[in-house]
């Protein structure tokens, strides 16, 4: 019987690797220097499996598996790169660019943006889908921070850090499908939120320029995320 601490051996991209039974494919791949693209995943937050960029192939199954939520198994043979995976990943990034209004040159996160990095990695030099150009607002009601829905990719990092780490649960998602959007409390202006502690964690974990500090100009919004892993480690130690 497999116990969480049991050490298993498997192959990722032909490389022999080992990991604990309670580790995911993504964790083991990273430990071994194998890069798998991610967007919604962020260390120390609960994995969501929503962006679908970390999908990998596992030998013996026609299905694809999200590496961030799939635990390793003895003898597993994982493929993190293939023509099929590259094609899908590129399309996912293209779909995200076409979904809202991502205009890098005027974005506060230009040069420090996870979406931009992914586009560079996938070689997305153009988007082969009709741009949707939705009319979306900017919520500037908070004293120190702003939310530009035009740049949001719905990765839910803000939702998770606010609920799981800060414990405030100010953010959640309202609406569904293509109409889904992050909302503060019961879809109130952020500045009117009773639950927001103004801690700014959501701003730091946001992969794009959707959540930003007021007063920064284009390309000036550099995000600092190292606090999250440190904070989680300290809390675990304290327990």
């Amino acid at each position: 019987m497999t116990t969480p601490s049991q050490v298993l051996t498997l192959k990722i991209d032909g490389q022999d690797v080992t990991g604990r039974a309670d580790e995911t494919i993504l964790q083991v791949a990273r430990e071994n220097g194998i890069h798998i693209p991610t967007l919604c995943f962020l260390d120390s937050l609960s994995p969501l499996g929503a962006c679908r960029l970390c999908l990998v192939e596992i030998k013996g199954s026609p299905r694809l598996f999200a590496a961030c939520v799939t635990y390793i198994a003895e003898g597993m043979e994982v493929l993190t790169k293939s023509d099929r995976l590259n094609k899908y990943r590129r399309m996912i990034v293209e779909l995200l660019f076409a979904e809202r209004n991502h205009i890098c040159s005027i974005c506060v996160a230009n040069g420090h943006c996870d979406l931009q990095d992914l586009a560079r990695e996938m070689g997305v030099t153009y988007v082969d889908f009709p741009y949707r150009y939705p009319r979306l607002g900017v919520d500037a009601s908070h004293e120190r921070f702003g939310l530009d829905h035009n740049r949001c990719v719905l990765c839910m990092r803000c939702v998770r850090v606010c609920g799981e780490v800060e414990g405030a649960h100010t953010w959640d998602v309202a609406g569904r499908g293509i109409e889904a959007h992050v909302s503060a409390d019961l879809d109130f202006p952020w500045g009117d939120s009773d639950t927001c502690t103004s801690c700014g964690k959501c701003v730091q974990v946001c992969p794009t320029g959707a959540l930003f500090k007021k007063g920064v100009a284009a390309a000036e919004m550099v995000k600092h995320r190292s606090f999250l892993v440190r904070l989680t480690a300290m809390r675990e130690e304290a327990e």
Partner: peptide, 16 residues
């Protein structure tokens, strides 16, 4: 219109 919007392929893919 019935997609929950959580994953990108279903949320944006069906709209496209």
């Amino acid at each position: 219109s019935e997609s929950c919007g959580k994953c990108v392929p279903c949320r944006v893919g069906t709209a496209q």
